[in-house]
Amino acid sequence: MILSRISQAIRAQNWFAVAIEFVIVILGVVIGFQVNGWAERQDEDRRAAVYLDRLLSDLETNEMRFTTAYAFREQVRDLGMEALSYASGEAEAPSDWRVILAYFNASQAGGAEPVDATYREMLATGDLDLVRSVQLRGLLASYYTSTGFSEITDSLPAYRETVRGIIPIDLQTYIWENCWQSIVGRTQRLIDCDGPETTDPGRISALATTLIGHEQVNAELHFWVSNQYAALTIHQAQIDQTAEALSALRDLIGEIE
């Protein structure tokens, strides 16, 4: 239609009409680009909002997991220290069962599995630039690329194998079922519990005496307790990094809203 009018104006040498038609065409193209650009920005804003909301959920989950893992490691360390105090004679156990429980649960291990699905998806799709804060992108890159921590938090000590080779399976099963709890994300919680009522007290007493006096068990437990301090330092760093990333993310979401 426009081309037809331009052709007619050119044939009639109506240059003013030709100019007007060209202006209309150019304005149409410019407006079209602006509309397309606006639509693309709107789409990017919507995608960014979804990503930011998912990142927030991931980081909040990680905060819970790392905090729970820290509390778990504190329990493991404290039980190890408790068992060593019985072995050294610095403390007297309240019961023979308490000795067995302390020695067994002091052998627990395992870190927390962080959630990183959203960040990995953004990297794979090239959508990380939708996070328009350079500071936050840097924090996320550092947060999700930390390596080497699992070598300490997930390590299995010789103590674990030794002490579990001494404690009978039925007692270990009882502890698993009554004195330990698994939480999502590979995190765990230790529970104080009474001993099994059906077990011969003499058997419990003999086992407690064996553990307290076992040189190899206690030597290996010394190392494992020391390892807990490294694990606790790592989990505290993970908690601090998560809090920093969460703060920056919430600030960005607040600015957008």
Score class of each variant (00 low, 15 high):
residue 94 P to Q: 04
residue 223 F to V: 08
residue 174 Y to K: 03
residue 58 D to M: 03
residue 113 E to A: 15
residue 118 T to H: 02
residue 126 G to Q: 06
residue 81 M to K: 10
residue 70 Y to C: 02
residue 257 E to F: 02
residue 241 Q to A: 14
residue 24 I to W: 09
residue 98 R to S: 10
residue 133 S to N: 04
residue 72 F to G: 09
residue 118 T to K: 03
residue 54 R to C: 06
residue 187 T to Q: 10
residue 138 G to E: 11
residue 227 N to L: 09
residue 213 G to K: 05
residue 169 I to T: 10
residue 142 S to Q: 14
residue 247 S to N: 04
residue 120 R to K: 14
residue 38 W to A: 14
residue 232 L to G: 02
residue 32 G to A: 10
residue 204 I to E: 05
residue 235 H to W: 00
residue 67 T to N: 09
residue 87 A to C: 09
residue 25 V to D: 08
residue 141 A to M: 03
residue 65 R to C: 01
residue 153 T to I: 06
residue 173 T to W: 03
residue 70 Y to N: 09
residue 111 G to N: 04
residue 112 A to V: 08
residue 37 G to F: 13
residue 43 D to S: 13
residue 250 R to K: 12
residue 210 T to S: 11
residue 232 L to C: 01
residue 138 G to W: 13
residue 130 L to W: 01
residue 40 E to L: 12
residue 14 N to A: 07
residue 171 L to Y: 04
residue 250 R to Q: 14
residue 4 S to E: 14
residue 216 Q to R: 14
residue 185 G to I: 03
residue 199 T to R: 12
residue 121 E to Q: 15
residue 85 S to E: 14
residue 12 A to H: 07
residue 107 S to I: 05
residue 214 H to V: 00
residue 50 V to Y: 13
residue 255 E to D: 11
residue 150 S to K: 04
residue 36 N to G: 03
residue 92 E to P: 00
residue 182 S to R: 08
residue 52 L to T: 03
residue 210 T to D: 09
residue 145 T to C: 02
residue 211 L to F: 02
residue 203 R to L: 05
residue 202 G to Q: 14
residue 48 A to H: 07
residue 30 V to T: 09
residue 159 Y to K: 06
residue 149 F to Y: 14
residue 185 G to Y: 02
residue 224 W to T: 01
residue 127 D to G: 07
residue 211 L to E: 08
residue 126 G to Y: 07
residue 58 D to C: 05
residue 182 S to I: 06
residue 9 A to H: 03
residue 107 S to D: 04
residue 110 G to Q: 11
residue 29 V to D: 10
residue 225 V to I: 04
residue 74 E to N: 15
residue 118 T to N: 04
residue 151 E to Y: 12
residue 187 T to I: 05
residue 203 R to S: 04
residue 250 R to M: 06
residue 44 E to C: 00
residue 7 S to I: 08
residue 111 G to F: 11
residue 43 D to V: 08
residue 255 E to W: 05
residue 41 R to Y: 02
residue 158 A to K: 07
residue 187 T to K: 07
residue 130 L to R: 11
residue 123 L to E: 15
residue 119 Y to R: 02
residue 114 P to T: 03
residue 158 A to C: 00
residue 19 A to E: 13
residue 23 V to S: 10
residue 181 Q to T: 12
residue 242 T to I: 08
residue 49 A to P: 03
residue 128 L to M: 15
residue 49 A to D: 13
residue 35 V to A: 09
residue 49 A to R: 14
residue 162 T to K: 14
residue 113 E to Y: 13
residue 111 G to P: 07
residue 187 T to M: 10
residue 237 A to W: 04
residue 134 V to Y: 09
residue 221 L to A: 05
residue 181 Q to D: 04
residue 5 R to K: 15
residue 199 T to G: 10
residue 230 A to W: 12
residue 69 A to K: 02
residue 133 S to F: 05
residue 127 D to S: 13
residue 167 I to G: 06
residue 242 T to N: 08
residue 241 Q to V: 00
residue 230 A to M: 13
residue 23 V to H: 02
residue 21 E to D: 10
residue 202 G to A: 10
